[in-house]
Design a protein around this nucleic acid. Structure first.
Lengths: 82, 82
DNA sequence: CATAAATGTTGTATATATACAATAATATGA
DNA sequence: TCATATTATTGTATATATACAACATTTATG
């Protein structure tokens, strides 16, 4: 199973599933399936979603569970401060 | 259609399709299909292949055609030299 | 050259991703 | 509270990814 941050990124931007679905050209229920982890996006859809958020694909999808973005950010800042 | 560098990376390392297929846990013919562009890898398989090559997924798969790696390398070196 | 290994081709079967529809449940806003 | 938008749930249908097998063709190697 591939983990993703779709729901987080979508809500962060105040988008409904339909908004995102329309933007990437799929049915709004498909976004629901992805967010719930019912199944994985295709590679093509994964790239479209990442492109839409203007993020590299591996910031949106990962074979390993994501840390929270806050956590990641804090770690990077700590590292940069050294 | 998603472009990929699977064949390039595989042959660069002197691997047969079967070698790579075994390493990522799919049928050897599946690797053939991907290399020929008959269909796209699933997101899961894409991550496994990228992991196997120890590369970020977007260096192996892309919605846009890849430049040759030589070209990319040369450009980066030129930029770094500035 | 002869043999084996790797790749290509074709065909069938199964699993998974996506679409679409109808309805229920939940949240949001006037 | 009422109305509306959003999300969840269930079911059916289609497209695409993957497995597997048999055989042809190409490439490597003794």
């Amino acid at each position: 199973m591939i983990h993703n941050r779709v729901k987080l990124l979508r809500t962060e931007r105040g988008l409904s599933r339909k908004d995102l679905a329309d933007a990437v050209g799929v049915n709004f229920q498909t976004i629901g399936y992805l967010e719930r982890g019912d199944y994985n996006a295709s590679l093509e859809l994964a790239f479209k979603i990442a492109d839409y958020f203007e993020l590299p694909i591996d910031m949106v999808f990962s074979p390993r569970p994501f840390k929270s973005m806050a956590e990641e950010l804090a770690e990077l800042k700590a590292k940069a401060a050294k």
